[in-house]
Design a protein around this nucleic acid. Sequence first.
DNA 1: TGTACATCAGTGAACGCGCGTTCACTGATGTAC
DNA 2: TGTACATCAGTGAACGCGCGTTCACTGATGTAC
Lengths: 239, 239
Amino acid sequence: MAETQQGPRARYREQTRAEIKEVALRQLADGGVGALALTRIAKALGLSGPALYRYFANRDDLLNALIRDAYDDAATAIGEAAATARARGPRERLRVLAGAYRAWAVSEPHRYLLIQGSPVPGYVAPDDTLERARAVLGPFLTVFVHGSPGADTAAMVDRMGAWLKRDTGVASWVAEYVPDAAGDDRASAVALTGAVLAWSQLHGAVGLEVAGQFTGMGHDGETLLVAQSGMLADAFGLE
Amino acid sequence: MAETQQGPRARYREQTRAEIKEVALRQLADGGVGALALTRIAKALGLSGPALYRYFANRDDLLNALIRDAYDDAATAIGEAAATARARGPRERLRVLAGAYRAWAVSEPHRYLLIQGSPVPGYVAPDDTLERARAVLGPFLTVFVHGSPGADTAAMVDRMGAWLKRDTGVASWVAEYVPDAAGDDRASAVALTGAVLAWSQLHGAVGLEVAGQFTGMGHDGETLLVAQSGMLADAFGLE
DNA sequence: TGTACATCAGTGAACGCGCGTTCACTGATGTAC
DNA sequence: TGTACATCAGTGAACGCGCGTTCACTGATGTAC
């Protein structure tokens, strides 16, 4: 936003920050979170260790930045898919969104693991994480608003309804993505139920694929996704 | 098996090994895989560091043992649930198995993460891991043998059928758990499809719950599972 | 346009830490005759 | 039952390593007048 007002120094600074994150991601890619080491990043960039502290307060600060970026990137990918499929029916929109989610995760598994993998011990997520995570899931809400879930899902819809009543943050999030459900408690709860179910299914399929559990089966991450989103669409009577 | 033939020395050795694993699990529980440190385990047991090398060749060896145990424990839990529900219909059996899977995972999240979490970087799984993982999933095969999956799942059934033809290991695994499908390629593929779908769904639900993503929603791990297994049962026309 | 000053990037030395692992050893426990 | 020997648990010292982070500093770049 204020970028154009920044002098060359600030621009150079931003660039170096980007380079640091780039190297950090490469380390993450071939060594996991444990392999993220400031000293090694510095060396890779031809800098001395302490120089990095000009750009990030400490290791956790860098980790935070990477996580924020990952969420934002994922949200963008999902958002674009949602925009593309806006005119389609809910059933196909679900498939497109699921495909976009998987595509992003599979193309950069280490970033997916960063935001959805095992909780990093000792790491405390910053406050805005929740908001960013919601930006990723938001488009899924729109798929299910007009769905009518079956008997097995009834209990979950009730729970989600209660949650909406209790937590104004969630309520306004739902309202933001599905404004046509404003005031309709039932529709909001249904949308939320569908989104959480979709999230759970996606995490299962993508998490297993990323962990390499499907190797040898014949590449079926996409096939699995089609089967799953079909099931979910059926369960909500989507067209 | 040969336990009764072992002298007191061997028995004592087994006991110390167990104590080491116990402390290791405690470390895992409150610090993740990165917190597993031989020297700290030794200190906790009142031993010097090098003493541990009498019991485990190195850190990876200990990790292997923990992973093996976790798989075996999970397999036992699922196996017992399967035995309990043997007389029930497939729909309810699925729910019971899913509940048992979740119960085990939630009661010891660190062990679940050990076998299903992010791949540990640099760690190479031993050969018998596959076999143990199959022991966990085996009972799920029996649920779906006589199911008739819908259109969206057709492609996946085909893939699984091809996999069964290609990989004799999988084929014999399926044959072991669902002997009544012997020679019936279609039924075997259907059973395998259902099991993989169930696995994926369970991993999603349990993985998110274990990562703490559901906190604040009101405890709905079980509700989610009921919704999911209901959907899956519907998709396969289970009774 | 030139000068004085402030800001900022980056350095090198140093800190304390905990880690996995090896080695040569001591002393207790079990085994063979 | 007693003795000689082999086996095994455990120790303490030591290794090299890479880590995050602090500190006092140098030199270049930007800014104000």
